[in-house]
Amino acid sequence: MTEIDRRPVRLSAIVSLGAAAVAALAAILTASVGGVVAGLGIVALAPGLVVGSRRLVHGGGVVLAVGMVFAGATGAGAAAELFLLVGTAATVVAWDVGQNAVGLGEQLGREAETTRAELAHIGATLVVGGVTVGVAYGLYQVAGSGQPLPALVMLLVAALVLTTSLRQT
């Protein structure tokens, strides 16, 4: 029997790299230092998606996220909030879809027909990211600008507590 090609599936790998590029772009637009770090993240992610290394994909995701934090910490452009929101969502998409590509490659192989499974997963992740970015930015524009920072922090903590309680149900 011929060996199964266990490398990551193509479509998800491409989408993952695309999302990583969007994240890097958002980081550059916020602050160039963050863009450099995010670029390093892509350097780690891309080979991971070619050879199918979970470790490299994880590493790439972490470096991308660090780049976003750097960008958020240093940059304060006109639309820094929006760029950072989009960039963080894109980082998560790149990391999640990249992992899925590796997982599908491991379980089914590159030759198998996996488009539907990939599209469903990519679609769901994108929708969650898109809705979050939209709602968060909208709320921030409407209500956030006047509030003091501690109030926002408390809101975030409340959201965290809520999600933790979701786990128990």
Binding site: A73, G87, A89, V92, G129
Partner: peptide, 18 residues
């Protein structure tokens, strides 16, 4: 760092967590 933009980034992560 008192950066509201980073708090918003955390919101994205919380949403995915949920």
């Amino acid at each position: 760092l008192k950066q509201p933009a980073l708090l918003l980034a955390a919101v994205v992560a919380v949403a995915y967590l949920a």
